[in-house]
Simulated scan of single mutants.
Amino acid sequence: MEAVYDHLVTTLTNKFEVDAKEVHPDRTLGDLDLDSLAVVELFVTLQEHWGIPLDEDGATAELTLEQLTQTVTTQLSADGTAERGGAPR
């Protein structure tokens, strides 16, 4: 789960130019000023990086970073990626 969160933070700060000081597990994507288009782009980016499907219907600004991390981690476990060391595809 830590690798997923670390990647999420890196993606938010590098690709979406979110200030690293603003990134905390309890912050929502909306708190970080990501609009609906940016949230969908984040989901697509995570899907491509980890090679997993994510339900884009769940891509809302109200989602916390902790919830998103858990969603990705759960999908990785279901997909078997965690069993392969959690490495992205």
Rank of each mutant, 00 (worst) to 15 (best):
E2P: 03
A3W: 01
A3R: 04
A3Y: 01
V4S: 05
Y5Q: 01
Y5I: 01
H7K: 13
H7M: 06
L8F: 07
L8V: 12
L8A: 09
L8T: 08
T10Y: 03
T10P: 01
T11R: 08
T11D: 09
T11P: 08
L12K: 06
L12H: 06
T13D: 10
T13Y: 02
T13K: 03
T13Q: 07
N14L: 15
N14W: 14
K15C: 14
E17A: 15
D19P: 08
D19L: 14
D19H: 15
E22R: 14
V23N: 11
P25M: 03
D26S: 12
R27Y: 00
R27G: 06
R27C: 05
T28W: 11
L29R: 00
L29G: 00
G30M: 06
G30L: 04
D31G: 09
D31R: 09
L32E: 00
D33Q: 10
D33M: 06
D35S: 01
S36T: 11
S36Q: 09
L37T: 06
L37A: 08
A38C: 08
V39F: 06
V40N: 02
V40A: 09
E41Y: 07
L42G: 02
V44N: 08
V44T: 14
V44L: 14
T45C: 11
L46Q: 06
Q47D: 02
E48M: 07
E48P: 02
H49D: 03
H49E: 04
L54A: 07
D55W: 00
E56I: 07
E56G: 02
E56T: 09
D57H: 10
D57Y: 08
D57Q: 12
D57S: 13
D57L: 10
D57T: 13
G58R: 14
G58V: 02
A61T: 02
A61Y: 03
A61G: 05
L63K: 15
L63I: 12
T64L: 08
T64P: 04
L65Q: 08
E66V: 00
Q67N: 10
L68Y: 05
T69H: 07
T69N: 10
T74R: 13
Q75P: 04
L76N: 11
L76S: 09
S77M: 10
A78E: 15
D79E: 15
G80F: 10
G80N: 11
T81G: 09
A82P: 00
A82I: 11
A82G: 11
E83L: 12
R84T: 12
G85A: 01
G86N: 03
G86M: 04
G86C: 02
A87E: 10
P88A: 13
R89P: 14
R89L: 07
R89I: 05
